[in-house]
Structure formats: C-alpha cells, structure tokens
Design a protein around this nucleic acid. Structure first.
Length: 601
RNA sequence: GCGCUCGUAGCUCAGCUGGAUAGAGCAUCAGGCUUCGAACCUGAGGGUCGGGAGUUCGAAUCUCUCCGGGCGCACCA
C-alpha cells in the first residue's frame, strides 16, 4: 500500500508542481483507497476543485487502479485483485503490520501509580490500561520505552496507617491475617492483609471526624517515619510489601508490567533538599503567604503560584514532582516523558512543568514532558471516595465480568475446553476494551451494565470474530490454523505478536465481493489507527478500527462462504488468506490494548 | 469569580490537523440458522451537532459570546 501511495503522490506532484499533495483515506472503501482533496491546490491555480479533479483523473494512470473524480475529490481506487494483494501482502509480511523500525528514541511512561495500602478501584484501571496501551503502541512503532510506576508510598497517610495499626491491630491481629471483629468480614475475593490494612485506614478516618486529636497521633507517626524511627520504618516497609504483592497479582491478571517499582514518592525524599537548592540557585523562590516559599508563574499565564516549601518547612506534592522531573532528566536522558495522571491534576502538572522549564529551559522544551490526563469516574450517587468506603473495586468488576461471561459460555458453548481461562480473557477483555473505546479525558459515571457490556461495540465482539476465524481455519486444516497461531510471547515484555512471515498466494480470485473488498479496506486502516493512537495518546482509534474490522469480517463471513465444496480451490485459498490476515490484525490490535484473543470461546 | 474540560439520535459514544449525504452500539420495530460458530447478520425509524454571532468557497470541527454539566484554584496527595 505504501508503494501505491508513493506512486500516486509523485504522479500528483508532477501534475501540480510546487503544491503539497496531502492524501486522505476516504470515508468508505466504495469511494476508493486514497483520496486527494483538490480544494487547496485548485484555489492556488484559480480553478474549481471539481474541474481540477476531473482533469487529473484523465491525466494520471496507475497500474492496478482507477482514478475517479468524485466532485472535488480525486480518488484512487485499486482493482479488487490489486487491493487484495496490497493489503494481504502488508499483513502477512515479515515486518509486523503497521509497525515501525527501531528509531532510537526513548519514551518514559509513568502510569498506574497506586497509593500503598489502598485497593485498586475502577479508577486505577484507567491510568493502568491507558498507560499500558501507550507503552505498547510506542514499542510497536519502534520507540524504546521505560515503564515507571510512581507508587504513592510516602506522605501523611502513612502516619494514619501506622496509628491505626497501633490502635486496633497490633495487639489482636499483628499479621493482619484474619478478619477484624469490628469490621464486616472481608469478601471472598479479598481476604488479604492489604484489605485489612485498608479497613484500618477507613476506620481511622471515620473516627477522626469525631475526635480531631487523632489527627495529631497520625501526624506524629509520620514525623517519626520521616526521622527514620526504626519502628515506623519497619511498619512502612511491611505495609509497602503487602501492598506491592497484591498490586503485582492484579498487574499479572491485566498483563501489565513495569520496569521498576522503586522510583515512587519515597524514592525522592532525600532529593527534595537539592531540588529546593536548585530553585534557590536560579532565584526562582519567593516568599508567599504565611511564609511559604513559592514559584510565581504569572509570567507564563498561570495565576496560581507553585508552592514548593510549606510555611513549616515541609515539602509538598509539587516538591516531589519537581525532584522527579530533575531525576528523570539526569538518569534517563529521555526524548519524551508522558505522565498518565487524572484530569483533576491538570493545573498541578502545568505548574510543575512550568517550574521545570524555568529551571532548565534548554532541556524542558515544548512537548518534552506531557500530561495525558484522564477523566474522573463517578458513581450514580456521586464521587468515589476511598476514605468513605464508597468505591467500586477493580477486582470486583473483573470478577463480575468473568462470572457473567461464564454464564454465557454455559449457555452457548458448555463443552468449551478451559472455560475458566477463556472467561478470564473475555471478561477482562470486555472491561479493558470499554475503557479503551472511550475518550481518555471524558469523565463517566460507572454502571455495571455499561462497563461489563458483552455484545455490540465490545471486546468480546472483536474476540468473537477472531474465534470464528480460528474455527474456520481449524476446519481448513492444521497448516491453515498454524498461520494464525502466534509464536510464544510474553504479554508484559513485547508489543508485537510474533507471526511467521508468509508469502501471499499469487492467485487471489474470490475476493471481488463487496464484503471482501470492504474488509480489505478496513484492514488497511489499522496502521493509521495505530499512528493516531500515538498522536492522541490514547488507544481509542485502535479500538474503533478493530470494531470496524470485526464487523466487516462478520459481514464477509455470512455472505462469502469459505469452505463449501463448490468453491474453486483458488477462491477457497484466497478467502482463507483473508481470514488469516484478519485474525492476525485482530489479535495484534487487541494485544496493543492489553487484551488477549482466545481461539475458541 | 478565574482557569481547564465537556455538551452530537431516547441512552452511551465516534467524527483525526476545517472538506464528500454527520456515523456506530444499546434500546425499539421488521426479517434471517437442514450449509464454515445466531456472543452473529440484513433492514427500518430516530439528529435545530446546547443557543447565538463571526471567519471561510466550505464549520460538528476554528474564534467570540451566552446557557448547562464535571474538575481545579498554594500549606492534602
């Protein structure tokens, strides 16, 4: 397809020298494979776009394609056989479809970043999976990616945790290995020390409302932690361990990996003083209200100053993020650093980026550090609050999705082997796909039926198309199935599904039907969807394109029989090749989102 | 009050840097399994793109303004 595009571009450039010839993808494959909108050039030449399109259509000829003037557009439409050959050639070649060669650029992605001693909520899924898909897309396009989890493992909440633990757990349940008498029993799927730690946290906040003196108790423990008190330190380390253990289990379930968990908030504690010194050296710090030290940002259009040192001399969130920015500059020498953090922190990120830029304008240039915000998830009755305990836990959502899928399997395909494993892929796939499908920055209200929808525009719909293809290929013979079966790969460590290269069959008769041509056209759209995903810093375009491909396949499947006896061998082979190519595109596309594609379901 | 963000079909949402007749899914209605998986397919109805003004050959898209939601606005993270 790239060859065709270049030939078309140079033919156009020869006819209208000196003008840019930006090509577009037509809305539908009926119109053609590539479109040249004539508006701009026509204006420059003083012609009507309709006239120019007609002229160009009669002047240019390209082998294997028709050039059609459609009003002000000049469309290049490949002949059915050429279209098949171009698209399938791209999909079955040795270079993964739409991927890029290694480009030597290093991208840092910070995402997920949960707070220690809290459970994953549905909100964490957003940061985690948006980040994961950004990682996958960048890797796929040839970037070198570093995955950072900026754990919330420091701050006054640890004072709270330690105080709560001392009050209600140490004497009666020091290992946190059984339920508390005063609390509701832990649900079956969360009978873990982490959950009990979370219960302590919630209880402390509830009682603190009535007894404000408890706040001093928490503050005191945090002070001891900061000073390196052995007891506080021991508990902190332990809390961090039991949290991380649970986090890793969930990341495994989601197929998400990180390069380090070390560089969380605590990691930067001993780097804060130097950060303040660096700001002093640049004379950026001013005296603010009540003696706090701030960086004024009026000159860059931010009316709220960035507070770096509190009146009592303590550090704040921004101090840590500044230290983080400096450390990453020195340690990673990256080309771009993407922060996947909630939209409610837009101002905060702007402030941090602005201060970093003042600190080192040579390094922190435009676009060097990027905030990829995502919208808040709320409940029908309001905002989620971990402290108040009215939250939707991620694992509950995943478990419920898997349960619903299992019920459908029992109904539709009770003899399916490895039901539990498949249900896990489909249920989690549904939740992840829903997240990917929707715009990153738009907030939404959680309802079970929305997030765990299983038909229509959903992950399982795409997975179903893939499973049906595999079913056809199995029936066609082991050698066909093998072409859609990837080699072994670690879902956490690669973005590319390894398929064996395969020469396109030379005869591609049998793909002239409009449904087959439409499917080819949509398959051709996947690479640009991947590029758009990178530009927009969200996988939505990929998810949408996968739906369109799956839908086109379903239509092709119902209208163009593949294995029936009266198909001539070359028709059968061409249609099977299209099936193989579609299966590969679907599985690879889903993989970029972090979703697996079962071969049966 | 200031800033950011969103407002598209009954509901949930696409619509990429302005460009072809504004598209999907859900829901509703009407069809389709003796043939490769009906978790599917085919079709129908349903839209003042929040209101107004402007820029342009052309605006859902850009600008301004108003209305309405969400978020944020220094000693929490």
């Amino acid at each position: 397809m790239e060859r065709i595009r270049e030939a078309f571009e140079s033919a156009l450039a020869a006819r209208v020298p000196g003008h840019g010839v930006a090509l577009e993808r037509p809305k539908s494959g009926d119109l053609g494979d590539l479109a040249f909108p004539c508006f701009r050039v026509a204006k420059a030449l003083g012609k009507s776009p309709v006239q120019l399109a007609a002229e160009l259509a009669s002047q240019i000829t390209l082998e294997g394609a028709d050039l059609l003037a459609a009003g002000p557009y000049l469309n290049l439409k490949l002949h059915p056989e050429t279209r098949a050959k171009e698209v399938l050639g791209g999909l079955l070649a040795s270079k993964p479809y739409g991927s890029g060669a290694s480009n030597g650029q290093k991208i840092i992605v910070e995402y997920s970043s949960p707070n220690i001693a809290k459970l994953f909520t549905i909100g964490h899924l957003r940061s985690t999976m948006i980040g994961h898909s950004l990682v996958q897309v960048h890797r796929y396009l040839g970037f070198d990616v570093v995955r950072l989890n900026h754990l919330g493992d420091w701050g006054t909440q640890f004072g709270t945790l330690i105080a709560a633990y001392k009050r209600w757990a140490e004497a009666v349940n020091p290992e946190l290995n059984r339920d508390f008498e005063w609390a509701d029993p832990a649900p079956e799927n969360r009978r873990t020390p982490l959950f009990r730690l979370f219960q302590l946290y919630v209880r402390f906040h509830a009682e603190e409302e009535k007894d404000p003196a408890m706040r001093d108790e928490a503050r005191d423990w945090f002070r001891r932690l900061e000073k390196g008190d052995a007891e506080a330190r021991r508990l902190w380390t332990w809390f961090r361990e039991i949290s991380l253990k649970e986090f890793l289990r969930i990341y495994d379930r989601l197929g998400v990996g990180f390069d380090t968990f070390v560089e969380g908030e605590a990691f930067y504690e001993d780097k804060l003083a130097d950060t303040v010194k660096a700001l002093e050296a640049k004379h950026l710090l001013q005296e603010g209200e009540r003696g706090a030290r701030i960086v004024d940002l009026e000159d860059v259009g931010i009316s709220t100053p960035c507070m770096v040192v509190k009146a009592d001399g303590g550090s704040v969130y921004a101090t840590r993020d500044l230290a983080t920015g400096i450390y990453r500059r020195d340690h990673y020498q990256y080309d771009k650093c993407i922060y996947v953090i909630g939209a409610e922190q837009i101002l905060h990120m702007q402030q941090v980026f602005a201060v970093l830029k003042k600190l080192d304008p040579g390094w922190f240039t435009e676009g060097k550090v990027i905030h990829a915000p995502f919208g808040l998830i709320s409940l029908p009755d309001g905002k989620m609050s971990t402290r108040k305990g009215n939250v939707i836990f991620l694992e509950d959502v995943l478990d419920e999705a898997v349960t619903r899928v299992l019920a459908i399997i029992e109904e539709k395909n009770p003899d399916l082997p490895r039901k539990a494993e498949v249900a896990e892929m489909l249920g989690i796939g549904a939740v992840i796909f829903f997240n990917a499908l929707n715009d990153r920055v738009k907030p939404f209200t959680f309802t079970w039926d929305r997030v765990i929808a299983l038909d229509g525009d959903t992950g399982p719909y795409v997975q179903y198309a893939h499973a049906r293809i595999c079913s056809v290929l199995r029936k066609a013979g082991a050698e066909w199935m093998a072409k859609a079966a990837p080699g072994l790969h670690d879902s956490k460590e690669t973005a590319t599904v390894p398929y064996a290269p395969w020469e396109v069959p030379t005869e591609l008769k049998g793909l002239e039907a409009p449904e087959a041509q439409a499917l080819l056209f949509e398959l051709a759209g996947l690479p640009s969807a991947i590029r758009v995903a990178r530009e927009q810093l969200m996988a939505t375009a990929i998810a949408r394109q996968l739906l369109v491909i799956a839908r086109s396949f379903s239509s092709f499947y119902t209208n163009c029989p593949i294995l029936i006896a009266d198909n001539p061998p070359e028709v059968r082979e061409a249609r099977l090749a299209l099936c193989v190519a579609t299966a590969r595109a679907l599985r690879q596309g889903l993989f970029l989102l972090g979703i697996q594609a079962p071969e049966e379901m």
